[in-house]
Design a binder for these strands. Structure first.
Length: 389
RNA sequence: CGGGUGGUGGCGCAGUCCGGUAGCGUAUUUGCAUGGGGUGCAAGGGGUCGCUGGUUCGAAUCCAGUCCACCCGACCA
């Protein structure tokens, strides 16, 4: 009595327990915590599993249940909240670009795509190798909307009451999908060194215990030197798998650098170094091999980003009419930079006709007079369209 | 919910149209060789053909029903 009863017909095979949307929890709590300007600013960060009742799921990118990180802040002034929301977008962008080696475009969402309750929704948009866009992170400037909805007021220095200013922002395990889809090739994963759990693998090649002992000794020296440089390294002397099998296995797992060490190498005081990103192999002297590998890891990190950025930049196409627009979407794919009349109706119509949505209005879009590709009405700047996940 | 495709050794598939004692690759087991790119040769083991019923001397195959999975769409701040 007075409790919820599960609808037997709607009962799931695997039951889920759902909570209210985060804002409801956070803001009803903030109401109790915030009285004075001295309580501000306030920031709560949490990692939580959330559920979206998607009719159609997609591994890593759109799953029913996923893990995400979300932050909620409250501020005394509008400027401070605005600054916070832009700062967090930069934090996400920096992480995705510098660590994941995935280039992103920073921008603002259109009203249609904006988070319900936000004044502005900012986003970072990445491009996958199949030409589809992926929203990799988001940050909202919430204005005073949630403060008003949950009645969260504070006294300023003059003892006058006002609603607080808010932001929220988040990224999710979708980033794992972005990492996989931005870099991998037909041989498997390619992980950027900065986030690769294993950065270097050493594969011995030998016949008999005598050779094995010699190679193991040399491998241990290399490992010690690499560890001095904080490189994450593994020596795979598993006798059940052959060298060729190991090569393929670690390539599939995306280990950035492989060092192969065999009798021929020892004779020449050398080792074979193979990099995963380009698949190049070359014989390198054992003198200062750890230092050289350390440098190579840095080079791979930069190369992966450059390669992804070159691909992304080649797939931003400026178009000036409807024919070009649909042609690029169908054949070339990627982002399409086009003029738009600024109305939600036009945006919706374009989506119905092409499945492409406005991914964002880039922060760095230059002001430029033009005509909307669909309606021909005047436009002040180009926006980025794409088919998205 | 609508449209499409499919369910056959662990995994990936052929066989189904045209009924006749279930096959290939891979994995696995054993032995020998091999070991610098997912080893080679030889010999083994492993299958209620999604499920139920029907037709037939005989069904993976034909018929009816049913369950499940995947893809496309609706959905997706």
């Amino acid at each position: 009595k007075g409790k919820l009863i599960v609808d037997e017909d709607a009962k799931l095979e695997e039951e889920l327990i759902v909570r209210p949307t985060s804002e409801a929890i956070i803001w009803s709590t903030y109401k109790n915590w915030i009285q004075s300007y001295r309580d501000l600013p306030i920031l709560i960060n949490q990692w939580a599993n959330v559920v979206r009742w998607e009719m159609r799921t997609r591994l890593f990118l759109r799953t029913t249940e996923f893990l995400w990180q979300e932050g909620h802040t409250a501020h005394a002034t509008k400027d401070e909240a605005l600054f916070e929301s832009r700062q967090m977008l930069d934090v996400y962008a920096d992480f995705v670009e510098s660590f994941m080696a995935v280039p992103v475009i920073k921008g603002v969402k259109t009203a249609n795509e904006r988070f319900a309750g936000a004044e502005d929704t900012y986003c970072i948009e990445a491009l996958m190798q199949d030409g589809k866009a992926l929203q990799a992170g988001t940050s909202h400037f919430l204005g005073q909307n949630f403060a008003k909805a949950f009645d969260v007021k504070f006294s300023d220095k003059n003892n006058t009451l006002d609603y607080v200013w808010a932001t929220s922002w988040g990224v999710s395990t979708r980033l794992i999908g972005a990492l996989i889809m931005a870099h991998s090739d037909d041989d498997g994963l390619i992980l950027p060194p900065k986030i690769a759990p294993l950065q270097v693998v050493i594969i011995p090649i030998y016949k008999g215990d005598e050779q094995k002992a010699l190679i193991t000794q040399k491998a241990n020296e290399i490992i010690a030197a690499l560890k001095q440089l904080n490189v994450r390294v593994k020596f795979d002397d598993n006798d059940n798998a052959r060298p060729g099998w190991k090569f393929a296995e670690y390539e599939m797992k995306g280990v950035p650098v492989r060092i192969t060490l065999g009798p021929k190498d020892l004779e020449n005081n050398a080792a074979e170094i193979a990099r995963r990103d380009t698949k190049e192999k070359k014989s390198t002297s054992l003198d200062n091999i750890a230092g050289n590998v350390f440098e190579l890891l840095g080079e791979i990190q930069i190369n992966m980003f450059s390669k992804a950025k070159a691909f992304r930049d080649e797939h931003i196409t400026e178009v000036n009419n409807w024919e070009e627009f649909t042609d690029v979407l169908e054949n070339k794919t990627g982002f399409v930079s086009a003029h738009w009349d600024g109305t939600g109706e036009t945006e919706e119509k374009i989506k119905d006709l092409t499945k492409a949505t406005i991914r964002c209005i880039p922060f760095d879009a230059k002001q430029e007079e033009g005509a909307c590709i669909l309606t021909g009405k005047p436009s002040a700047q180009r926006v980025l369209f794409a088919k998205a996940y």
